[in-house]
Design a protein around this nucleic acid. Sequence first.
DNA 1: GGATTTATGGAGCGATGGCACCAAAAAAAA
DNA 2: TTTTTTTTGGTGCCATCGCTCCATAAATCC
Lengths: 208, 208
Amino acid sequence: MAPKKIDGERRGRGRPPSFDRAQALCAAMRLFWDRGYEGTSFDDLTAAMGISPSSFYNAFGSKEQLYQEATDAYLKATGAWFLDILHGKADTRTIFQRLMTAAATEFTRADLPAGCMISVSGTQCAPGQARLRDLMARQRALSEAAMADRLRQGVADGDLPADTDVDGLAAFFSSLARGMAVQARDGASREKLLEIGRIGMQAWPAGR
Amino acid sequence: MAPKKIDGERRGRGRPPSFDRAQALCAAMRLFWDRGYEGTSFDDLTAAMGISPSSFYNAFGSKEQLYQEATDAYLKATGAWFLDILHGKADTRTIFQRLMTAAATEFTRADLPAGCMISVSGTQCAPGQARLRDLMARQRALSEAAMADRLRQGVADGDLPADTDVDGLAAFFSSLARGMAVQARDGASREKLLEIGRIGMQAWPAGR
DNA sequence: GGATTTATGGAGCGATGGCACCAAAAAAAA
DNA sequence: TTTTTTTTGGTGCCATCGCTCCATAAATCC
């Protein structure tokens, strides 16, 4: 196949890649998102990415390294709405209201796999995949910690009572979102998820 | 190895099994629960069950059939607390309060794998495992429907306002429990899960 | 005891999974 | 043009996976 000119970037020495790395990474991400790490085979990946095993190995190192890159890509692209909303300008309750609504909407997009790649990945796996399991658990912990931070700010801003259990509340919303992700993967409708989020907001502490 | 007398039951004709079927099934259930279907290999299973491939095949048919049996065993034994509480005698709010508390407790037992086998299994898998994915999704749907039924009864009993969205509320508690299961698999403490459940109960509809 | 029935141990097998290697191709640099 | 650097296609490889087969062992039935 004739190598295509990808773009006008300053190129290094050797033969140029015949594929768009970012695009291939995106294809891999969708596969991993939908099928999980163990459910996605090397052949599945090379087929979806449109590259040969050698190109795969050359460009991404290994299946495991690719998975890590795919996770990063997910967080920076598809999962960006989370931090965007969390760090947006609004009172704390509104922020979490938006998070629930966005989760319902994003988890049921027609153009992407259902649910959330972070929420449901690596919860069960072979002992040999411990590194990946820990990677996903760490990402879940980071999301939850970001929620807790925003809630702490809410307490400081007077949006929440001073005695609010911010860690507990973060764990609650975090759990609810993960449960919504499972629902989405089971085919739940956007309306159903919106309702779950709406009910979840009823647990918001009294005091404002 | 000399075959052991398992019990005094009326025995059929041929050679008696050298292992306790229920016990082997339990061992398999724990493995599946902890590692998932794809994360558990045939060798892992035969080793944990203490039987040879031929005995395995003879007694359980295939890995997939064993998984189905293991799921049944989970529901009938380990997951029995769910229906026990749901069908217990108490007002509706108390029932759901108990469910949340029991989920927190059961998901963090020292003598069993963390979390819930139903909640987190088969959310991501290879296309070839579609049957198992659907099986787990169906079980999740059944649990949720059982919750909805109990809530409907609550409305009939006057425990809940007549305009309560029982399906939505069931979906909410269902999602929360699944999120708690993910938390448990990530190593969350019993106290943390209890707190999540406590906060979740704050979403209980007003009116009693 | 012999026939029949069921379970066992152990070896092996076809398919798949995840790479690994290598000669050739296509670019920049000299 | 030659050299150097990087990517590619294709093939091969070794381990694992999930069985499968078969000769043998241990029970009941006649």
